[in-house]
Computed example of a mutant assay.
Amino acid sequence: MRRLLQRMRAVKDLLEAAEQEAVALGLDEPDAEHQLLAALDAPDGVGDGVGLAAGAGP
């Protein structure tokens, strides 16, 4: 249960960061590219998994 709550918090943080990215660019709503930018900037290494899933090497 604790792990699930941690993951839910991580998703919430990621979506909030994506919204901030969009607002910083003058947009009303975040798109996929804002979510990617937020994941790459995340301090918990979420962006690492995104890169690996896309086929990038370590």
Rank of each mutant, 00 (worst) to 15 (best):
4 L>F: 11
49 G>C: 11
11 V>E: 13
54 A>L: 14
12 K>G: 08
38 A>F: 01
31 D>F: 00
35 Q>T: 10
47 G>V: 00
29 E>G: 00
31 D>W: 00
25 L>R: 05
14 L>D: 08
13 D>I: 08
20 Q>W: 09
9 R>E: 10
47 G>P: 02
22 A>C: 07
15 L>R: 09
31 D>V: 01
7 R>N: 14
23 V>S: 07
56 A>L: 15
46 V>K: 08
29 E>N: 02
40 L>H: 08
57 G>H: 13
38 A>S: 06
6 Q>S: 13
14 L>K: 06
17 A>G: 03
51 G>Q: 13
9 R>M: 08
44 D>N: 12
9 R>K: 15
52 L>W: 07
45 G>Q: 04
50 V>Y: 05
3 R>F: 09
30 P>E: 01
3 R>M: 11
21 E>L: 06
21 E>R: 07
10 A>F: 09
10 A>T: 15
46 V>Q: 03
48 D>N: 05
21 E>W: 03
26 G>I: 00
9 R>V: 07
23 V>C: 00
39 A>W: 01
12 K>V: 09
11 V>I: 14
34 H>Q: 09
34 H>L: 06
5 L>S: 14
38 A>R: 02
45 G>I: 04
31 D>L: 04
32 A>P: 00
57 G>F: 08
41 D>L: 12
50 V>A: 12
36 L>Y: 11
53 A>M: 11
24 A>M: 07
12 K>C: 09
43 P>K: 12
29 E>F: 02
39 A>Y: 05
37 L>H: 09
30 P>T: 01
30 P>H: 02
5 L>H: 12
21 E>I: 07
44 D>A: 11
12 K>L: 15
51 G>T: 01
1 M>D: 11
37 L>E: 07
11 V>A: 14
1 M>K: 13
27 L>D: 07
55 G>F: 06
6 Q>K: 14
24 A>G: 08
6 Q>T: 13
8 M>K: 13
50 V>F: 12
29 E>Y: 02
12 K>F: 08
41 D>V: 03
47 G>E: 02
7 R>K: 14
7 R>P: 00
56 A>W: 12
58 P>D: 09
34 H>D: 09
3 R>Q: 11
49 G>R: 06
44 D>H: 11
20 Q>N: 13
24 A>L: 06
13 D>A: 15
31 D>H: 01
13 D>T: 12
51 G>S: 06
48 D>G: 07
19 E>N: 12
48 D>V: 05
16 E>D: 14
53 A>P: 03
45 G>Y: 01
18 A>L: 02
56 A>H: 12
36 L>F: 09
2 R>A: 15
47 G>Y: 01
13 D>G: 11
12 K>A: 15
5 L>Y: 12
25 L>H: 03
44 D>S: 10
20 Q>K: 13
57 G>D: 14
5 L>W: 14
32 A>K: 03
9 R>F: 10
52 L>E: 14
7 R>L: 13
57 G>E: 15
36 L>I: 12
55 G>A: 06
26 G>H: 01
